[in-house]
Design a protein around this nucleic acid. Sequence first.
DNA 1: TGAAATGTTGGGGCG
DNA 2: ACGCCCCAACATTTC
Length: 476
Amino acid sequence: MQQLPSALVWLRRDLRLHDNAALYAALKSSRRVWCAFVFDREILDALPARRDRRVEFIRESAVELNDALAAHGSRLIVCHGRAREEVPRLAAQLGVAAVFVNHDYEPAAVARDATVGRALAVLGIDLRSRKDHVIFEKDEVLTAERKPYAVFSAYRDAWLKRLVPFFYQAYPVEKYLAALAPMSACALPPLADLGFERTNLDRIGIAAGARGAERLLADFLGRIDSYRERRDFPAVRGPSYLSFHVRFGTISIRRLVALAAERSSEGARTWLNELIWRDFFFMILHFHPRVTEHAFRPEYDALAYRNDPEHFAAWCEGRTGYPLVDAGMRQLDAAGYMHNRLRMVTASFLVKDLHVDWRWGERHFAQQLNDYDLAANNGGWQWAASTGCDAQPYFRMFNPVTQSEKFDPTGAYIRRYVPELARVLNEHIHAPWRMSEGQRRQSGIVLGEHYPEPIVDHAQARQITLELYGRVKTRA
DNA sequence: TGAAATGTTGGGGCG
DNA sequence: ACGCCCCAACATTTC
């Protein structure tokens, strides 16, 4: 590799030193390497509120990164401004020969990186991008006809067939840290300077940074073999809870895939499958950036949604009268997280019971989810709305009561997030409106006062959905 | 990574 | 004893 005098690593959603592709490439090819992070006003200004767990998480992870770099005599350079301007400015100021980044597949990020690349080129500086966020990207897994897959299971088989340890080998960044540029202490902007306030991050037990990720991973490794049996029950500690960290790269995807692939249990296999879904949706977004605005299956852009703002507000605020749905939405509000089973149930409910455009729900999740990721969120919503790639058939509809009985049989999850139903018996907690007058008195519930009546009748809503989607289908 | 509607079967109550 | 009916339980089809 051609030796460069110096380079800058621009960290974005890869807030770690360990097994970081761009950092590794920079360290290996350059004599002096700086690391920087930009709090990008273009992104911050688009956030819905001045309290945002993600901003706080990023800042705390940056503090940890700064400490880790300090241990090697360097520091994290933290800028605050428009990334399009800050990065070229910083690169010029440092006089580096190249800027290293990891590929970001979101259309807006692709456009931003192209702008930065052009600005750098004018300065005679190279922008070099590496694959880091996924195992196989873009066109690395294609059908026999060299076309992108449109069906997940076929994609997964091809993905697994390609997978050899080479693809999840960690980049040995640690061996090359001597190339980090010496730096003296520099201040990280406080949250307030970024225009944000503290959130409940630590109160809900979320630890940022690589150390936070390691703690979750260690805990999950004790449970991974039973992931398959436990993952569907929101009251049970089944999932890894690593999504926040995966989103911001405080842990590397290769690390996780290595752990899953080299374990033979059904639990590990099932979990690996989820990681493959992630690659799948990044791939879809790469080939079909229009999905950010449109249904993957264009004919479904014609769906005549009802889009009742009252219904949408009730859904957002967890007062639909369907306890499991409300519990999910309130967990989202309280913690910025929702169990995956609930993401499917609440998404299905918004689209197929309330007949609200999936994009409304997608936007709400984007604003609320700590682990929000455009590719996965869009893919998940289009799957649930039956408008997507390899989506569930539109007549496959969740019954919010049946789902509740199956996956929260004792109502433990419901009671945690919908405390007004705490005293309702197990047999009624999934559908409290079916209680008799006496039973309502006994559980201290007046429907419509303490807890809402169901805002729609599921059986009726189901018929409407069949009619709504059927209309599209016959036209196509 | 559903659920509802419809069809089939077989055991038991009962005339 | 026998056939009829009811209806769970399970299977299949349909949305």
